[in-house]
C-alpha cells in the first residue's frame, strides 16, 4: 500500500511540474451558469496578455453550484480565482480555510462585483398560465422550478427576491413574506443543486410551468432554443451581485499572482464589459450598458445591503441550519 501511495504521489508531482514558465494556467472556480461567460472572457484576456507579455494564459474553469464550489476550494481545489454567485460563499472560504483575507471584497472596484444580474421568470412560449408577477407563482396548480438555496447561489437570490417582493407589497411585512415564500416553495416539485441543473430540468425535461432564474441564464435559454420560451420581468426583483476574488494562498503557491490579478482587473475593462453584456450579464461600464440597453429592462430592484442588512445577516437568518428556509421547506410536504 505504501508503494502504491508513493507511485501515486510521484504521478501527482509529475503532473504538476510539467507546466512551462511561458504557459500559464489559471484555475477559476465558478458558479453554474458562467460556463459560456468565462470561456469568452478567458479567450479575450489570453489574447491581450499574449500581446503584452508573450506568455500564453489558459483559463481552466470548474463549474458547479456556488456553495458546492466554495466547499471544493475549502477542501483544497487549487483555484487561483473564485467567481461565485454571492459574497457569502467567498466569505465562507475566507473564514473556514483562511485562503484569502476577510476584507477581500475591498480589494477590487465596485465591492468586487464586476457585473450584476437579477432574477426573472422563464415561462413556456405564449405564457399559457398568464404569469405576470410574483403572486401568480402561487396560484393553484402552478409548478415552479428553482434550485436548492442550500447549494445554489442563484436560488438564494431568487428566494430573497421573492421575500423582498412580499415584504414591500402593499400591506406586506416580515410575517407575510415568510408566509408567501413558504407557499412558493410548496409549488416547487424538484430542487436541483445548481442553477444550470434547474434550467435543464425546465427546458430539456419539460418539468414545471415557470423557472425562477438568473436573467443571464433565462436569456441564454432563450438564445439556445428560440421560440420556445418567454422571459417575464416581475414588477420588482433583486440586484444580484456575483463577486470575484483572488485566492491569495493559492496564487502565492502557484506563483500566479500577477496574471490572476491582471485577469480580475480585466473584468472591469470596457472590452470585457462588452463581453459580459453580450453574455447577458448587466455591465458596470456605461458604454456597454448603453449599447445593450434594450437587453436589460429597468425594473425596481431590492438589494441585500439595504433590504436584508448584508449577506452575513441574510445568510444566518435565512439559509443557515435551522434558518427560515429550513423552517418553511420540508421535502415531500
Amino acid at each position: 500500500m505504501k508503494r502504491i501511495l508513493s507511485l501515486l504521489a510521484a504521478a501527482a508531482i509529475f503532473a504538476t511540474t510539467s507546466a512551462q514558465a511561458a504557459d500559464i494556467t489559471l484555475l477559476n472556480a465558478s458558479y453554474d451558469p458562467t460556463r459560456e461567460l468565462y470561456k469568452d472572457l478567458g479567450d479575450g484576456f489570453a489574447a491581450q496578455w499574449k500581446a503584452k507579455t508573450g506568455d500564453t494564459v489558459t483559463l481552466n474553469t470548474s463549474n458547479g453550484g456556488s456553495g458546492a464550489q466554495a466547499r471544493a476550494v475549502i477542501d483544497g481545489l487549487q483555484a487561483d480565482i473564485v467567481t461565485l454567485a454571492l459574497a457569502a460563499d467567498i466569505d465562507a472560504i475566507a473564514k473556514t480555510a483562511k485562503l484569502l483575507p476577510d476584507d477581500w471584497q475591498k480589494k477590487l472596484p465596485e465591492a468586487s462585483v464586476p457585473y450584476t444580474s437579477t432574477i426573472v421568470f422563464l415561462v413556456r412560449k405564449g405564457n399559457p398560465w398568464k404569469i405576470k408577477d410574483w403572486p401568480d407563482l402561487v396560484k393553484p396548480g402552478i409548478q415552479v422550478v428553482t434550485p436548492n438555496p442550500k447549494t445554489s447561489g442563484g436560488a438564494r437570490w431568487a428566494y430573497l427576491a421573492a421575500w423582498a417582493y412580499a415584504e414591500k407589497a402593499p400591506g406586506g411585512n416580515a410575517g407575510k413574506a415568510k408566509e408567501y415564500v413558504a407557499n412558493l416553495y410548496h409549488h416547487v416539485p424538484v430542487l436541483d443543486s445548481g442553477a444550470r441543473g434547474s434550467t435543464i430540468t425546465f427546458t430539456k425535461r419539460g418539468i414545471g410551468d415557470v423557472l425562477l432564474s438568473w436573467e443571464n441564464e433565462a436569456q441564454l435559454a432563450l438564445k439556445e432554443s428560440p421560440g420556445q420560451y418567454d422571459v417575464i420581468y416581475p414588477s420588482r426583483s433583486i440586484l444580484a451581485e456575483p463577486p470575484v476574488a483572488l485566492v491569495d494562498k493559492n496564487v502565492d503557491r502557484h506563483k500566479t499572482r500577477a496574471v490572476a490579478e491582471a485577469f480580475l482587473n480585466y473584468l472591469y475593462t470596457p472590452e470585457a464589459q462588452l463581453i459580459e453584456a453580450k453574455d447577458f450579464y448587466r455591465p458596470r461600464d456605461p458604454v456597454a450598458a448603453a449599447k445593450y440597453k434594450s437587453q436589460f429592462p429597468n425594473i425596481p430592484l431590492a438589494t441585500v445591503e439595504s433590504d436584508f442588512g448584508g449577506w452575513e445577516k441574510a445568510q444566518s437568518t435565512h439559509f443557515a441550519d435551522g434558518g427560515v428556509f429550513d423552517q418553511i421547506y420540508q421535502p415531500g410536504k
Binding site: L8, A11, A12, A15, I74, D75, G76, L77, Q78, T96
Partner: peptide, 30 residues
C-alpha cells in the same frame, strides 16, 4: 475528501509538500 482534503487529516501536510491527491489524478484513481 475527509482524509486528503485541505481540512482533512493529511490536507495541510500534503499541500506543504506540493502533493496533490484530491482534485487530481491520484484522487480519481483512489
Amino acid at each position: 475528501v475527509l482524509v486528503f482534503g485541505l481540512q482533512g487529516w493529511f490536507g495541510s501536510y500534503l499541500l506543504d509538500h506540493d502533493i496533490h491527491i484530491l482534485f487530481a489524478l491520484p484522487g480519481i484513481v483512489l
